[in-house]
Design a binder for these strands. Structure first.
Length: 582
RNA sequence: GGCGGCGUAGCUCAGCUGGUCAGAGCGGGGAUCUCAUAAGUCCCAGGUCGGAGGUUCGAGUCCUCCCGCCGCCA
């Protein structure tokens, strides 16, 4: 099942937009048009989404988790819609001087050190229900093979040349620093005058060496074309504008290697053991490695979506597409950039002691709870503001109260003595409002059904736009309307006449349909919680796809196949109300 | 200093292409209910739409200047 099959709902396809690729007459999603349709390779037909690979010099933090959760949510959404064979990759970037130094400081071999810290990332993602299909580490041999091949590709195409660099270099940042970003300072230990990077404060020293350069300066026009021909190339617009500004200022060639005697922990330049490949080039190629580069990547490449934090957008939206173009490959279809998380309006920092520990918060609020908060309060464009008070409030209102309350209401034996999925009566609630003697439904009730019917379409659009907070707001509002519907008709007050029983059953049916549809649509955000909810409703595993959410039988005058089915046996609250802490 | 983005209720946002000078969710206050997780339902308060000018019959929405925040470049 892939993108291009006729009749299939294609990946990332909005309802209204279809675009036919002229070269091959393929149906492609409108936001992600193929830039280069020619060639004799297999065409891409499988979805690829990635997070960055995370540096293992430190334990994972909330920002890492947010990247992973965002990517996971979009990946799950795609899977709900039928994207088979997709790749969602994440992993760890394990090369570089800082890694080597951190290992030495811990009295460990670098490889051993990386093994341990990488496990922390794995653990966090596992605990957070991040369903990556691949966890790559840059120390893997498949990655080295990919990087070496990629390097040779760039070299043989003439985009790498040997150059001499003379200027300031920061060892701790592993970066060359331009003159204008250097300032005078004093070494506090020795009192001697030194120079430091204005940006990071690290000491820099004058350095002259030979290394390899990449002809980045030649790619400005092509990068601009990529950016301007695809509104999603860099998304949202705030970052696209930022990148266009960089391109407008001109690009300088990029140093892509370091002398090996200074940076031994990395991949050697092929055929030149005196140089090590620059860690960012090394790291970025991971996105190809996970696809099977250099020989088996065609089904997944180009990437549909790289999810990245705003601090690394330059690497992903300037260097990476340029590298790819130089290697004769398509750039990514979309680089989705998100902002950071503050702690009560302040930047998180170890020195302030206000860093949020995601492991701790998962313990407190559950993984799905933390995911819900991050996705409800996070917006791509703006820094999120974390606060435990906010977490507790939103989880109590939405999960414990709204959706959890409706679920328990519907499943309680007092309203649902048979503990089965109740029937819908078209007598009491006709498909169309109008004169019908037995109809008990009001105009407000028809509005609810209409909202429920339209929910999958609008939510689909919101997912596509990464407006997860709108997904949540709109879905929770629909659930609230269902609570109001139940309250309005008070089935607990109805009598024992056949008509009353029919109507009571219908009321419960609609409420539970709202839960079923909402539960399906919210699986990407809260996989475990919604799985539990759907199981309690008696929804089979095979009935939880996007098309099942789109299909509300009672609206169409059909009986639902699950009517009469025994409900799940799990009892208790869906989401335990949280107490305010501290 | 130059360029770019932003500034709408306590919080998060909608209000895009000028037209009932303003909405939603959450939070807050009040009332009510007790089928259900002390859940639900109803009502209310909260806004100089950063400030000052301008264009227009009419501006949150367009223009100018200023203030503040963020980012990039120098």
């Amino acid at each position: 099942m892939g993108i291009v099959q006729r009749g299939m709902r294609s990946i990332l396809l909005s309802r209204r937009a279809r675009f036919v690729c002229e070269a091959r007459r393929l149906v492609c999603p409108s936001p992600y048009r193929l830039l280069h349709c020619g060639g004799n390779h297999q065409q891409k037909d499988k979805f690829l989404i990635t997070t960055p690979i995370f540096y293992v010099n430190s334990v994972p933090h909330l920002g890492h988790l947010y990247s992973a959760v965002l990517a996971d949510t979009i990946h799950r959404w795609q899977q709900l819609k039928g994207a088979g064979g997709s790749i969602f990759s994440t992993g760890t970037d394990e090369h570089g001087l800082k890694i080597q130094q951190a290992a030495v400081a811990h009295g460990k071999d670098p490889q051993q050190f990386c093994d341990e810290v990488s496990t922390h990332f794995r653990d966090l993602f596992s605990m957070s229900h991040v369903g990556h299909t691949d966890f790559i580490r840059t120390t893997e041999s498949r990655h080295r093979t990919a990087v070496e091949h990629f390097w040779r590709k760039l070299q043989s195409a003439g985009y790498i040349y040997q150059g001499k660099y003379e200027g300031w270099y920061s060892t701790s940042d592993e970066a060359f620093v331009p003159d204008n970003k250097v300032m005078d300072s004093v070494d506090k230990t020795t009192g001697k005058s030194i120079k430091v990077s204005i940006e990071t404060g690290s000491q820099v020293e004058w350095m002259k060496e030979e290394n390899y350069m990449f002809r980045l300066s030649e790619f400005g026009p092509r990068l601009l074309k990529w950016l301007d021909s695809n509104p999603r190339a860099v998304y949202p617009d705030k970052y696209r504008t930022l990148v266009r500004g960089w391109l407008g200022e001109g690009l300088e060639d990029l140093s892509v290697s370091r002398q090996r005697d200074r940076l031994p922990w990395g991949i050697p330049v092929p055929d030149d053991p005196t140089q090590t490949i620059y860690v960012w080039l090394d790291a970025l190629v991971n996105y190809l490695t996970v696809c099977g580069y250099p020989d088996n990547h065609h089904a997944h490449w180009p990437a549909d979506c790289h999810v990245v934090g705003k601090d690394i957008v330059r690497f992903h939206a300037v260097y990476w597409p340029a590298f790819l173009m130089a290697a004769g490959l398509d750039p990514p279809r979309s680089v989705v950039t998100h902002s950071h998380w503050l702690m009560e309006s302040q930047k998180m920092s170890k020195s302030k002691g206000n860093v949020v520990d995601p492991f701790d918060r998962i313990q407190r609020y559950s993984a799905d709870g933390l995911r819900y908060f991050l996705l409800k309060h996070g917006v791509l464009e703006a820094d999120g503001d974390y606060s435990d008070e906010k977490v507790v409030k939103v989880l109590n209102a939405d999960l414990a109260g709204n959706i959890g309350g409706l679920l328990n209401r519907c499943l309680a034996t007092s309203l649902n003595p048979t503990q089965t999925f109740p029937a819908f009566s078209a007598n009491t609630f006709p498909v169309h409002p109008g004169r019908q003697s037995n109809s008990l439904a009001t105009e407000e009730d028809y509005k609810l059904l209409k909202t429920l019917q339209e929910l999958p379409g609008s939510v689909d659009q919101h997912y596509e736009n990464f407006h997860i907070y709108k997904v949540l707001e709109e879905t929770m509002l629909c659930v609230k309307q269902a609570n109001g519907f139940v309250h309005r008709h008070k089935p607990w007050k109805l009598g024992n006449t056949p008509q009353d029983q029919e109507w009571a059953s219908t009321i419960l049916h609609v409420a539970m349909e709202t839960l079923r549809v909402s539960g399906i649509l919210l699986q990407p955000v809260m996989p475990n919680l919604m799985s539990g909810l759907l199981s309690r409703l008696g929804v089979e595993e095979t009935e939880r796809s996007w098309s099942d959410a789109e299909d509300v039988p009672c609206v169409k005058g059909r009986e639902a196949p699950y009517v009469g089915r025994t409900l799940g046996t799990n009892r208790g609250v869906l989401f335990q109300r949280l107490q305010k802490k501290n």
